[in-house]
Lab assay of single mutants.
Amino acid sequence: DEVTIHLGDKTIRVDGLDKELLEILKELARRGADEEELRKEIERWER
């Protein structure tokens, strides 16, 4: 499953996201997290 996250004018595509992680990323994005913060969160989950 590829998920596309839209952040204002930026788009991040991620393969096979965990549903819980997806919810966390959506919440972070709502709070104004930037792409770098979201990537760090994704990397934390992948470990």
Rank of each mutant, 00 (worst) to 15 (best):
G32P: 00
A33G: 07
L22I: 15
E43S: 02
I24S: 04
A29L: 14
L25M: 01
V14A: 09
K10G: 12
L7V: 14
L17V: 11
R30G: 09
G16S: 10
D1T: 13
A29M: 14
D18H: 14
E36K: 07
L7C: 02
E46K: 03
E35N: 07
G32W: 01
I12Q: 02
E20F: 07
R13I: 12
L21F: 05
L7K: 02
K19C: 06
K26L: 15
R13W: 12
K19V: 10
L22G: 04
L28P: 00
E36W: 08
E2T: 12
L21G: 01
E20R: 14
E27M: 04
K10M: 14
E27Q: 09
K40I: 06
D1Y: 07
I5S: 05
V3G: 10
I24R: 14
I42V: 04
V3M: 13
I5C: 11
L17E: 03
G8T: 12
L25R: 00
R44V: 03
E43K: 03
R30C: 07
T11R: 08
V3F: 13
R31C: 15
I24V: 11
K26V: 10
L25F: 01
K26D: 06
T11C: 03
K10A: 13
D9A: 09
L25E: 00
V14T: 09
I42A: 02
H6P: 10
E23I: 10
G8I: 05
A33H: 06
D18T: 12
L17F: 08
G8P: 08
V3Q: 14
V14L: 15
E23L: 09
E41A: 15
E36F: 07
A33E: 02
R31L: 13
R39H: 04
E23R: 11
R13F: 09
E36H: 13
K26T: 10
G8M: 04
I5G: 04
E23D: 13
R31Q: 14
E46P: 15
A33T: 04
R47W: 03
R31Y: 06
I5V: 06
E41M: 11
E20I: 11
D15T: 10
R31I: 10
G32A: 01
R44T: 04
L17N: 05
T11V: 11
I24N: 05
E35F: 12
K19Q: 12
R44I: 08
I24W: 13
D9N: 11
G32Q: 01
G16E: 09
K19R: 09
A33I: 04
R47I: 12
K19D: 11
R30T: 08
E35Y: 15
D1K: 11
V14P: 04
L28R: 03
R44C: 08
R31A: 15
E46H: 05
K26W: 05
W45H: 11
E36C: 02
L25I: 07
E27D: 15
V3R: 08
G8C: 11
D1P: 12
V14H: 05
K26Y: 08
E27N: 10
R39P: 00
D15H: 03
R30V: 07
L28N: 01
D9V: 05
D9L: 03
E37P: 00
I5R: 04
A33C: 03
R30P: 00
E41D: 00
L7N: 05
G8H: 09
T4V: 15
A33W: 06
V14R: 04
R47M: 11
V3T: 14
L7A: 09
L22E: 03
L17C: 06
R30I: 07
W45R: 08
I24C: 03
E35T: 06
V14W: 04
G32I: 01
D9I: 04
G16Q: 14
E43G: 04
I24E: 02
D18L: 06
K40T: 07
L21R: 02
R44Q: 14
I12A: 02
K19I: 10
G32K: 01
D34L: 08
R13Q: 10
I12N: 03
E27S: 07
D34G: 13
E23W: 03
